[in-house]
Amino acid sequence: MARVSISDGAAAGIVLAGGRSSRMGEPKAALEWHGSTLLHRTAALLGRTVDGPVVVVRAPGQELPALPAGVEVVEDPVEGLGPMQGIATGLATVAARAPIAFVCSTDMPFLHPAFVQRVLRVLADLDPAVDVVLPVARGFPQPLAAGYRTALAELVAKLVADGQLRPAMLFKQCRVARPDDAELLTDAPLARLDPDLDSLVNVNAPEDYAAARRRPAPQITVQRYGALASGGHHGPQAVRAGTLAAAAAATGLVLDRHVVAALNGDQISRDPALPLVAGDVVAFLSADAGG
């Protein structure tokens, strides 16, 4: 799956990590997920999906779990103002480097790159006068799984300053495209890889989290190349794995310095925590490729 970039610049990813997690009873950002945390996975997933910066917005003084290399952390100036404050902070942070951004919360364990790409491509392809792509899917508007033009940063900040803290206030003052389930799923990759739009499943309560954990790991395809294929390991193999390390283990490899992986024929990685999603194809190569 290719990363997203658009003709006039990169696309950014923004994860809002603040919020009280009151129904969960513990910080959602730190919930375990495939060996790391929900926040790590969400940030890493955006990192493998967009060409531009990935930013995590936290509440003042909020402790965060470990994050993937290269992910930036910024802090809301004021605590308790809700997602609009986070959106304002995030958009302002990336505005100079990316004209559009995908904004999401930290509690979406099944977020799929195909969904992110679908939303961002809709935004990139629309008339520039359209400011937001707000999916209205699985029965609700999804402001925390939406695409925003980063030029909105000032407007959002002004609304926050004026005490207008609901995203709906923003959507009244800008042009919004509202693709529904059917429209989103006209995108063939999304329809194939996330037909139920599970990307939008979030976990707010312990029972949600427990249910999410009961789901099997995503089904992916692995293939070993060269010397790594010796001993009858030729050809593609379907396995379930949520991370690169799990994929390696599933095919009998250890991710040491002699092994690298190519994700979907594109990104090269040896990061064991790299999140994998349904439909991924992972090629394991000798690290001494070339010569």
Partner: peptide, 23 residues
């Protein structure tokens, strides 16, 4: 050891399919 396994087992031609896989 493993650092030279590629050369011993398949030689430099092992690059071909791997390079094809990563365009």
């Amino acid at each position: 050891g493993p650092a030279t396994a590629k050369y011993r087992e398949l030689g430099t031609l092992a690059n071909l399919l791997a390079f094809n896989a990563v365009s």
